[in-house]
């Protein structure tokens, strides 16, 4: 019936390494959010200097709208990292429940659904970010002779990202059904 002692799964190497990786990633994301949050006001404060620096690099001197586009990209970065933190937090709780030997609960289904929504939102943010970056590169135009500038834009909607969203939503349903079966099993004598 109810499991009161922790199963040997708690000491599983896979679970331990997953927990460790999740903690490292969480702190990296928090660091990223903090850096970007401080960098945005600094960038806005020195926007005229940044625009002047860019004027030395590009044939057509870009206006302050490019600085605002950079700020927009940084904001999208913050949103993406917060969404990742949201997903990581839920994944950590699922990993903990696996360690406790009781993963088939309704709350885990809800957590997976939340991760699916977060993964979908990350896809949208990435898509918007790539559009914004492309627009910025086209505004910047050609580089002055002797100057170097390259920006590799990778984004848009990826098949693997969409598959991840679908996988998470299907897994959420699997866990819902698992929770129902667990309830039945717990009531079986």
């Amino acid at each position: 019936m109810n499991q009161t002692t922790k199963s040997p799964e708690t000491n599983d190497i896979v679970l331990k390494s997953t927990r460790g990786l999740l903690i490292v990633t969480k702190w990296l994301m928090l660091l990223g959010v903090t850096v970007l949050t401080f960098a945005i006001p600094v960038l806005l404060f020195f926007s005229s200097e940044v625009a002047a620096e860019m004027a030395d690099t590009f044939v057509t001197p870009p206006g302050t709208e490019v600085v605002w586009m950079i700020v927009g990209l940084m904001l999208l970065g913050i949103v993406m990292m917060l969404l990742t933190l949201f997903g990581l937090n839920r994944l950590r709780r699922i990993v903990d429940s696996v360690g406790e030997g009781n993963p088939f609960t309704r709350i885990n289904g809800t957590r997976l659904r939340g991760m699916g929504v977060a993964a979908f939102a990350i896809q949208i943010v990435t898509f918007v970010g790539s559009l914004l970056a492309s627009a910025m590169v086209s505004i910047l135009g050609e580089v002055q002779p002797g100057e170097e500038f390259s920006m590799h834009i990778e984004g848009g909607l990826s098949i693997s990202g969409i598959l991840l969203v679908l996988l998470l939503i299907i897994l959420a349903r699997v866990f819902d059904r698992g929770a129902e079966m667990q309830d039945e099993l717990q009531g079986t004598v």
Partner: peptide, 12 residues
Amino acid sequence: SILKTGKAKAMR
């Protein structure tokens, strides 16, 4: 006890 008190959902 669960069986006796009628709280069981199923019986093997």
